[in-house]
Write a protein that binds this DNA or RNA. Structure first.
Lengths: 341, 341
DNA sequence: GTGAAAGCGCTAACAA
DNA sequence: TTGTTAGCGCTTTCAC
């Protein structure tokens, strides 16, 4: 034992090492390592001794060292524009849970809605040599894409269905959403649609598709109010105020988040505007509160948890060295027809 | 170059290493390392050559290796019960941002509201040798505390003001909140208070304090509805329904989250119950939407971002080897007096 | 200001 | 099944 302590006095954290555990269990370090990683490739006797030594010393293995030696860090990075803004929450939650179940840990990075710090963020992430990176939201600067490809780390892009993903993809078509909502509202007899949209890429794609579809259906030109991301209840209220001044009036609003829709509901109520009779309101996201609003919110449901789980699956498959046959998964969406439309 | 490639063929990821960079810049690896970490301790000439080599190769330094050698990982772990549930979001957001500004990265762990996986989570976290751990919420099983202490990693507990923290602490007194709300509502002329509370430790402490304070003020005994955490709009609606059946009636409700309060507002509106004239509603958290509800929500404001920033500050001070003189910070709270009460 | 040597704690590869 | 050896890629230490 003395020599070990002597060695340690020079450097290191002073924590119990595998070396110590092996020493106590009277086996070689490599054998102790096997007892921990592949218990079935070790004799019952050795396993018992090592287990006991671990218990006795309170040993926690150093995954930095393990990751360095094995080039498998069991770390996965997730990048979100910002975690406030409930859109990606469920995805992150499901992702974290699915990863944790398999011994992976999540690293979180916020890109913000500006690109400036993106490069620093990528550097920080790649420097940890994660086994995978999950991109939530846009963030596809050419340099960023390049670095990701160069880093040779599995990447899953989510919440979108771009034609040429960096690597793997799980999302849905925002264009389809826009078209489906146009058809839906038209089918309900609405003729003067309007849109309140966050100023992000994906919202834009939804309402452009909606606009085009509305034209195809012979509807009036659609007034659009764009609000800054992340969207808030307040922007919903303000935006409705603006829309109500449109000449010709409106009889339906498609909001790019449920929070915006809640703002519209609130403002409508404050103004004595009846929903849905005078105004139909459709949200996006089917947040947990949507069903319990009064009136219950009609909204576009995305299975965000499924996105997280699928992303986790993708990453782990790759990390285990398996190849993924179908690199693109369309998770789809549905319109939940409640009282507000 | 050949010998380097030859060496690599056996193991490793194949990525560019500091060795390669140094080779190209015609300096020793150690000098290249200095050029990156402490640029001012290196000659301008060397700095330029190394910088160029980095640029040319796209080198990203391996922080696993760096962390192993220096026992400083520049990683910070945050543990939350669950990230859905907007309570801790701002804390996590501010924490992530403050850390990122200083080159630290956040690892996220969800303990869930049950203790079962807590041990596995701690093991996973400690195994990464983070420079600090931020605990958001309760999670103080005796064994957990023990492991954290044994791991000798700086710990910040948040959102609470326990008498004997593991290490550092930034929070506020939930008892004070309860008392303040009781006094506040009493001052508004309310006499029949009620409580809707999540079934977590901190909510419990708030409403117990409120109950005791109410007794001191000579008010009627307080009906309490406890709902499962995380709290939802729906539980708020349901709970109000239950409270309204109380013999004697109620004229004020204190909710343990703004989401619950929104549920109460919604249910009151659905039932034609006027807020605040017939029922005062007080929330907790001052979520971003609270001010824009109709009526605007009176609520208890916690500066959650400040909690995150202070926690980051604590951890980084310790990581830089400085000692923290005042290990406990009371961040306080305030009652935001809006229309709903 | 620069470099050589010696690890940090672990695991891949090979041998017994 | 177990052990030995040689690194993973970086930084500490100490000498120049």
């Amino acid at each position: 034992m003395e020599d070990i302590r002597a060695k340690r006095s020079r450097r290191g954290s002073g924590a119990v090492t595998l070396h110590d555990v092996a020493h106590i269990a009277a086996v070689a370090p490599m054998t102790a390592s096997r007892a921990l990683n592949t218990p079935d490739r070790v004799s019952a006797d050795v396993l018992a001794r090592v287990t006991e030594a671990v218990r006795h010393t309170g040993y926690v293995r150093n995954r930095l060292a393990g990751g360095l030696a094995s080039t498998r860090s069991k770390l996965v990075a997730a990048v979100v524009p910002t975690i406030s803004g409930p859109v990606f929450l469920q995805t992150i939650q499901a992702l974290t849970a699915a990863l944790a179940d398999n011994g992976y840990q999540l690293m979180l990075g916020q890109s913000g809605y500006v690109d400036s710090r993106e490069d620093a963020l990528l550097e920080a992430i790649i420097g940890r040599r994660p086994d995978g990176i999950v991109l939530t939201g846009v963030m596809h600067s050419p340099t960023g894409r390049q670095r990701l490809v160069a880093a040779n780390i599995p990447v899953v892009e989510t919440w979108d269905l771009t034609p040429s993903p960096i690597d793997m993809l799980v999302g849905f078509s925002h264009e389809d959403v826009g078209r489906a909502v146009a058809t839906f509202l038209h089918g309900k007899g609405r003729r003067r649609l309007a849109v309140i949209a966050g100023d992000d890429e994906r919202s834009r794609r939804r309402h452009h598709a909606l606009r085009d579809a509305a034209r195809g259906l012979g509807l009036a030109e659609i007034p659009v109010v764009v609000v800054p991301a992340p969207t808030t209840l307040r922007s919903g209220r303000t935006a409705l105020g603006e829309l109500l001044q449109c000449p010709g009036g409106i009889d339906a609003v498609f909001c790019s988040s449920d929070l915006l829709a809640l703002g519209v509901l609130t403002e409508a109520q404050a103004r004595g505007l009846a929903v849905p009779s005078q105004l139909a309101v459709v949200g996006f996201g089917d947040n947990e509160f949507a069903a319990d609003l009064d009136p219950a919110l009609t909204t576009v449901r995305i299975d965000s948890a499924a996105i997280g789980r699928q992303a986790a699956h993708f990453i782990m498959e790759r990390a285990e060295g398996r190849t993924v046959d179908e690199r693109i998964v369309d998770i789809g969406f549905s319109i939940v027809d409640r009282a507000s439309a």
